[in-house]
Amino acid sequence: MDVIVENLTKSFGMQKAISAVSFKARQGEVLGFLGPNGAGKTTTMKIIAGFLFPDCGEVYFGKDSIRKNPARIKQSTGYLSEHNPLYEEMNVVDFLTFIAKLHRIPRYKIDSRVVDILQLCGLEHEKHKNIKELSKGYRQRTGLAQALIHDPEVLILDEPTTGLDPNQIAEIRELIKRIGREKTVILSSHILAEIEATCDRVLIINKGKIVANGTSAELRSKSNAGKTLRVRIGSAGEEDIRQALGALPGIQKLNHPAGSPFFELQSDRETAIEQLIFDTCARNGWYIQELTPVETRLEDIFRQVTQN
């Protein structure tokens, strides 16, 4: 089921939280939501999940609109909110059974479904504990379990890996990717590596507006930072190399960390800088030991679009 968000606008009093946010999350795709604190990620997620009402704009799940068919949408959506609210006084099994009943899972299927989901989220050993006795990681797993129990078509996860240990983070990422192959997943995170590892497409939101939208590769190519190369040249003095490289046309930045045999140079994308480096070396009788392109990291793109 595709999720289409059109012109979503929401204000809290005088403060505009998001303004004219539009995007599309396709089925079989994990969409990553990135943004600095207070950018409007959580507000957008809460509106998509049907908790907040937008001032204007629409969200469509397939053909259903969030304003006209909220019940049907909620039936096929799993939502894990940022603070992961749970009924503290219930135990894990009772809580998951209660949520399963709310989702109208047939009575005879509930027990087996709860057992499956406990196994999937690694909660078997904690299942009879009250939720208030669980550690943060296990609480997070319980939150994830309640979002997944009815096998939803659309999964909305607001920072799903907070509080988990590294093994569990890897497992959950793997799980999200697996679900994302068939279902629609919208995921927000502060951890850029997580977005890069799990998401097919990235959406960067800043001050309530979408500032970048595309796959990580697309964002890199669109980014106006030039390409970066790492060069190691043998049989020459460092100062000579620095002067020769610095004189090349199209060079934006040349770095030489002290003690390192590598030079890091940034040039604009139009210049065939590799060829120029080769020619320079050939002219001077130097030989190239290493020439590696350094990819622009998502972090740099993030900084670039959110700081302007």
């Binding site: 908790f51 909620k74 939502y79 309640q146």
Partner: peptide, 14 residues
Amino acid sequence: RNGTLELMLTKPVK
């Protein structure tokens, strides 16, 4: 206060 209202209202509950 606990936020469970959000949990309930994002489930198919009116």
